[in-house]
């Protein structure tokens, strides 16, 4: 039986435990035995994206220690998964490091490519706007970005279409960045906020009641804006929707 390790990004662990719980239960309901290594912290991305790769090395080493013995590492974050896959060249390429980089999967990628999920027992009778988080889309290629001359394709959409009752709303700009960008969200506060407001306006214009994404960081940024605006629009991680049932 395959050994699956669950990686929960640091800020999800602290601020969005319900997302981690939904991810865990979703995987368990699909028959996967999941282990959550208790000594995990962070993939190291916040430091590295801020230009301080050397400050991310200790966190990256810890990550490898926690996860190298799994066949698959699953995380409800495209951004963190991409970081492990792409930027763990800061570590010496030991067999453990190489294994971790090869075996890290973003949740929807794992569901489609490895579990080959065709149906889900999910029910979510709301109008949903899907925010295509950049690192998942253009980094992990969870779908085809609108810049490319490739046919429409998206793993998260495939999964959302399996949910009963859901109505996915179209967007004017299907894959524009929300403006979070890690430290960008505070160092370029004005632009970050403007980008977020514009994304929200697009979802709102098309009647979305819920904005979902495969990355909670984008949603944390959008949620911050929505709550300040007293907007009725909610944000939910895609795992929460895929795990939602009639009861």
């Amino acid at each position: 039986m395959m050994k699956v390790g669950l990686f929960i990004p640091c800020y999800v662990d602290q601020f969005y435990p319900q997302v981690a719980i939904a991810t865990l239960k979703l995987l368990e309901n699909l028959g996967v035995t999941v282990e959550y290594p208790l000594q995990q912290t962070c993939c190291g991305q916040p430091m590295a994206n801020a230009g301080c790769e050397e400050d991310s090395v200790q966190a990256a080493r810890l990550f490898v220690r926690n996860f190298h013995h799994f066949d698959y590492i699953v995380s409800p974050s495209g951004s963190c998964s991409l970081h492990v896959e792409e930027h763990y060249d800061v570590l010496d390429p030991t067999p453990e490091v190489q294994k971790v980089r090869a075996n890290i999967y973003e949740l929807t990628e794992f569901l489609i490519d490895i579990l080959q999920v065709k149906t889900l027992d999910a029910y979510f009778p709301y109008k949903v706007g899907y925010h295509a988080s950049c690192h998942g889309l253009r980094g992990l290629r969870l779908g085809h970005a609108s810049e490319l001359n490739r046919p429409d394709f998206s793993k998260p959409h495939q999964l959302l279409h399996m949910v009963k009752g859901i109505e996915l709303v179209p967007l004017d700009r299907p894959d524009e960045c929300c403006g979070f960008g890690g430290t960008f969200s505070v160092s370029e506060e004005a632009i970050s906020v403007k980008m977020g407001k514009d994304r929200i306006a697009d979802h709102s214009r098309h009647g979305a009641e819920v904005i979902t994404a495969a990355d909670m960081s984008c949603l944390m940024h959008l949620e911050g804006l929505l709550r300040r605006q007293n907007s009725p629009i909610k944000v939910m991680h895609i795992a929460e929707i895929l795990n939602a049932t009639q009861n």
Binding site: C134, H135, R138, A145, L148, G181
Partner: peptide, 13 residues
């Protein structure tokens, strides 16, 4: 180089 979210749209376009 920090005036970016690293969204990657530039590379794809």
């Amino acid at each position: 180089p920090f005036a970016s979210t690293l969204c990657g749209s530039c590379s794809d376009v």
